[in-house]
Design a binder for these strands. Structure first.
Lengths: 219, 219
DNA sequence: CGCGAACTGTGAATCCGGTAACGGCGGAGT
DNA sequence: ACTCCGCCGTTACCGGATTCACAGTTCGCG
């Protein structure tokens, strides 16, 4: 049905619409495209997937489009998210995510540091890690964010999954081994940095044919 | 020649080798594969690209393989990196990157906060942003990391590029418009989180009988 | 020394995603 | 009302990336 790439782009389209065209009536595919770093054909095709139709010569009606994207991206019920690890990275994620996603909420954070456990940081209560299973079950948490050192990641991932989490966003520089049926998205800073450095040093082309995470400019 | 995906995986292979098989003599493609979350065929393909040959029934010689990867990933000269933005995210990146990459070094950081400028944070000196062009030129910085708010990102990207940077790692939730020839890698936390949530909600679990949600047609 | 097992290297086939292209429609101008 | 223009929806196509499959090679062993 909808591929992961399409989902990513839909999320991006929504953010763009909300940020700068919330009050406009209509928007064209090529406008969304230039703003998202894609082509107009790609935008149209993504919107075809979600089944929303614009009108010729007018474009897409912003309000209805946003609603339609929401229906396909957001889970019918609100999804609860757990953040594991409250170092610099964890706090950065917390401040990013709190205001951003409508249907997602970080309802609990975990850390081993006794200076942090029990306190409320950026509106989110920090618990000790031995309470993890309990709270994940009680709050019906389905998504986990791992912002912990590499050595701790695998064990915590297993605990999260066995407590009911089915989606993981992993910042630790390790490939997690989880049971099939669990979705893992890895964000690997080291790899990303080395990739950029490689292109900066040698290849002088922009990332074409890459996923939308790469900017694409036309001359 | 080598695609971006291959570069990413090579970087990952190297890290895996260094972390856990540094002292072993030989390694098999399927071992690297399971550790990297890939298939053995993929590993062999990637290693074919860099022109390193293993020996049948033995596998790849770890030391020589590491060296060969290094020749293809690392720039002949050491590359200097600038980090712009020293909020939580910036500091997290700093601590990640300092020990990790051999041939990359974050030589300067920038922030607008006068409490930070002039100080040395995690072994990296923090400068005011108006010194940016000067320092980028003096240090021959080729890679920039943007860990700043969305509104500031585009302007800083342009300044970095015009001062000589040719690769950007962008954490701001904006698609940068830069001149062609500059490589941009976007890391978009919001999009990543929404993607994970989507898969967690409508999971791709392998069991049979998962109901398909149908697309509403809009008139 | 020959056999079997296990791994590598690589051409071929397949899969996937993105782009081009074209028909259709709706509003604007005359 | 008719025509024209621009944009949308959709299909067909294309190129890259991944996987398959198999030949080639090396080592251990009886």
């Amino acid at each position: 049905m909808a591929s992961a790439k399409t989902i990513s782009r839909l999320s991006l389209y929504r953010r763009i619409l909300l940020r700068q065209w919330k009050d406009r009536a209509f928007v064209f595919s090529h406008e969304l495209a230039t703003e998202a770093g894609a082509t107009s054909a790609q935008v149209r095709r993504d919107l075809m997937v979600i089944g929303y139709s614009g009108s010729p010569n007018r474009g897409y009606e912003v309000g209805a489009l946003l609603e339609s994207i929401g229906e396909h991206l957001d889970s019918p019920k609100r999804q609860a998210v757990a953040l594991v690890g409250l170092g610099n990275l964890g706090r950065a994620i917390l401040s990013f995510a709190t205001n951003q996603c409508a249907s997602l909420e970080i309802v609990a954070a975990f850390d081993t540091d006794p200076l942090k456990t029990g306190r409320v940081i950026q509106g989110c209560r920090c618990h000790a890690e031995n309470e993890l299973e309990q709270i994940v079950r009680d709050e019906a948490i389905t998504v986990g964010i791992l912002a912990v050192p590499a050595l701790a990641a695998q064990g915590l991932a297993e605990r999260l999954v066995s407590a009911g989490v089915s989606g993981l966003l992993n910042f630790a520089p390790v490939r997690l081994r989880v049971n099939p049926g669990t979705y893992v998205e890895n964000i690997d800073l080291t790899v990303a940095l080395e990739k950029v450095a490689w292109f900066a040093g040698r290849g002088h082309r922009n990332g074409s044919g890459l996923e939308m995470l790469h900017n694409r400019r036309k001359a």
